[in-house]
Write a protein that binds this DNA or RNA. Sequence first.
DNA 1: AAGACGAAAGTGGTTGA
DNA 2: TCAACAACTTTCGTCTT
Length: 318
Amino acid sequence: MKMTTTANVRVRKRSLSAVCPNCGNGELVEDRTRGERICVSCGSVLAHGMADTGPEWRAFSREERDLRARTGAPMSLRRADKGLSTVIGWGNKDANGRSLGGKGRTAIYRMRKWQIRSQTHDSKQRNLKLAMSELDRLSSQLGIPNSIRETAAHIYRKALDKRLVRGQSIDGIVAASIYLSCRIHVAPRQLAEIASVAKVDKKGLGMSVRRILRGTGIRVPVPSAITLIPRISSDLGLKGRTVTRAASIIDDARRVGVTDGKAPAGIAGAALYISCILENDRRTQREISNAASVTEVTIRNRYKDLVRKLGIEMDFTQ
DNA sequence: AAGACGAAAGTGGTTGA
DNA sequence: TCAACAACTTTCGTCTT
């Protein structure tokens, strides 16, 4: 993935020329959830992998976090206690160091008791700490923006509450939460993509995803081929015209009903392959299959299908 | 030599009895 | 629970550019 000089991107956002260098007209729009800048008229993705505004450091405990953070405490679902807990110490002394007498002591006992009950202390907190640090690590590596991270954290908490994490690897459930969160934000990543970064295999990840879906009753939109187009085509560095053409091919395909039951990535890859040829912006089947995380064979099968069923004229002589 | 093609066998998931 | 099934993958030999 290309990295742009991200430091400048955000600061100079307003002073950017509003004209797309690809199509010459059109207006540029920043899509923060995907970390991309997009031309509204031709659809070309002009920059991606934009600044990750999260901290560049990692921390494994509250103490480390507090030590490293250079700003005040935000309230975030991604912190094990949402950053809001108060701790009552164990000594039977008051603020001046004097021992407490009988009455004060029983009061403190009572407060301590309720405080401990109010945080399902130990195991859950420990679990969340590990999970949230893994969540940050994974999503940084995948370039997942904060909004999607928060949703992922929310999903993880839900899973934890429903005891879905018991007996499963924390990492696996975290990865699954990220996967689901991406789908909810209609910025789908594929299982294989996330599995390659997480310490779980694709099969295990899929099982965790279904476990969460079943256990929590969360509803997520089914990923469609069209939502995969921006991601795949920006990896390939395609022309804007090629991208929009691929999108319209998928539109047609859906109307004709060619997309049912097929892997969205296969359809997306095939549509891109076709529009690459039509727009004379050639990419090999291998390049596309890599970007779409499917095999060349699948690209071939799908694109034959599409060409046949949509009656697309393919002219290879150009 | 690289890319495209398609056959054959294998895999994991879904469906229906 | 099992078998049948569709979609997809892997592998590999062949053809095309």
